[in-house]
Design a protein around this nucleic acid. Structure first.
Length: 420
RNA sequence: GCGGUCGUGGUGAAGUGGUUAACACAUCGGAUUGUGGUUCCGACAUACGUGGGUUCGAUCCCCACCGGUCGCCCCA
């Protein structure tokens, strides 16, 4: 038997309805916030992610699904959504459209080559938004608010929003230098990853779990202390907007996102519920001024976030929230004897045409078994067709909840059922 | 990439170095010649992840591999 590839999953009936519900809710929230859908390819030129996500990131260094096609092009299954959206923004000159900022959302599978565990798959689905063309701190707050509103509308309440500012270019450069100066004396005591990070991207040393308790970590220079006046003012305004709309958050100066393109606002939303798995991050995002230029577009600020549907469903499960998705069948048509088979089939189609959800037996089962099947499908009504009914052009309609039944003419059947 | 743990029918789950591998659920049929969710009876699948090894003989012991699962690193 051929099994599915490691780290992928089949989403079967019973589960797929939840996905549909979550996606429909997301689309509705995006509509309310006036974000429009963009669909980009699930593979891109490898270079897009190398330049967009950053060569020093774990994603690019060890997690990409990269392959060569028959024309010797190096392609990569997208590990995240932002690079593709920005590429499409530049390529399609969306910066030239009248409606700015461009507020976009996406929904689709992402791919990272990692060892699967709870909440981490090789193919996983992200819902995300990107707002391109505005450097108003209000839109940072809007993106964060959109994410929180979405989670809350599904009923999640054990959430923790963590925000930080990574500052602008000047802030980051000053901080970077301070980090190098601070950690260099301890270089030999740090883990091998951190020694590399110290050279390539010292900010990420702060993110290390191994060296978390090293004495140099506690006294490490905080980015918030190195913000330029401008960057500080920006961060203060973002917080002010969040406060104004009643969004509660926590500032964590060690929050460092794993992608190179972030600056200014960075945030993560985590599940704070007891008994959640080892991975608690439900979504993350931030501002990425400069990325559009890096990908050969005009100077354009941007901010966005992405969330994992898999982790969202885990969080719902963990909080005991069931989505309203279990709708039974309206009608199940039971037929008796050879002569009523064709009329039963015709009647089924007729009922479906009216908008009702209708099914019948296709395994030539006895009546008793057909009723069982109707139960399995949670049918509200069973319509019985035997020789007598066909002759009289009437059907026996049984209300499965009350057990009551009566004869109804074919022509008034739809009205009868809809009025109940 | 590293580590823990697990791998028996459609599902859940016992069990043993040796001629028929429990049980339960599900499914189908009957009791009830045209009526479900209860009950009783019956039927059912040639189920021990793959490949080696030890042995007279392995589903059981050993090894490797594959896969699931959880964790580390990191992230959504």
């Amino acid at each position: 038997m051929i099994r599915l590839p490691r780290g992928t999953q089949d989403i079967l009936p019973g589960e797929s309805e939840k996905w549909q519900y979550v996606e429909a809710t997301f689309i509705d929230i995006c509509r309310r916030f006036n974000y429009q859908e963009i669909r980009t390819p699930i593979f891109e030129h490898t270079e897009l992610f190398q330049r967009g996500v950053g060569d020093t990131t774990d994603i690019v260094q060890k997690e990409m699904y990269t392959f060569e096609d028959r024309g010797n092009r190096s392609l990569t299954l997208r590990p995240e959504g932002t690079a593709s959206v920005v590429r499409a923004f530049v390529q399609n000159k969306l910066y030239g459209l009248a409606n700015q900022p461009q507020k976009l959302f996406y929904n689709g599978p992402m791919f990272r080559y990692e060892r699967p565990q709870q909440g981490r798959m090789r193919q996983f689905v992200q819902l995300g938004v990107e707002a391109l063309g505005s450097k108003d701190p209000a839109i940072d707050a809007e993106v964060i608010t959109l994410a929180m509103t979405f989670y809350q509308s599904l009923g999640l309440h054990s959430l923790k929003l963590v925000i930080n500012s990574l500052g602008d270019k000047e802030s980051r450069e000053n901080h970077r230098q301070a980090l190098v100066n601070h950690f260099s004396p301890y270089r030999e005591e740090l883990c091998s990853d951190c020694q590399t990070r110290l050279d390539q991207n010292p900010l990420r040393v702060l993110d290390c779990k191994k060296d978390r308790d090293h004495k140099a970590m506690k006294e490490a220079p905080k980015i918030l202390d190195y913000l330029t006046d401008e960057a500080r003012e920006y961060f203060d305004q973002v917080k002010q907007y969040l406060d104004a709309s009643g969004i509660r958050y926590e500032v964590d100066s060690n929050l460092v996102r794993g992608l190179d393109y972030y600056n200014h606002t960075a945030f993560e939303i985590m599940s704070a519920a007891e008994g959640f798995g080892a991975i608690t991050t439900l979504s993350g995002g931030g501002r990425y001024n400069g990325l559009v230029e890096d990908l050969d577009g005009p100077e354009t600020p941007g901010i966005g976030f992405a969330l994992s549907v898999e982790r969202l469903l885990m969080a719902l499960e963990n909080e005991g929230i069931t989505l309203p998705v279990n709708e039974g069948l309206d009608v199940y048509v039971v037929s008796l004897g050879e002569s009523s088979k064709v009329p039963a089939y015709a009647l089924t189609q007729r009922l479906r045409k009216s908008g009702l959800s209708v099914d019948k037996d296709y395994l030539d089962r006895k009546m008793k078994a057909q009723f069982k099947d109707a139960d399995r499908n949670q049918a509200k009504f069973v319509v019985v067709l035997g020789e007598e009914e066909v002759k009289q052009q009437q059907a026996t309609v049984k209300d499965m909840a009350t057990g009551e039944q009566e004869m109804v003419a074919f022509d008034t059947l739809v009205d009868y059922i809809q009025s109940k």
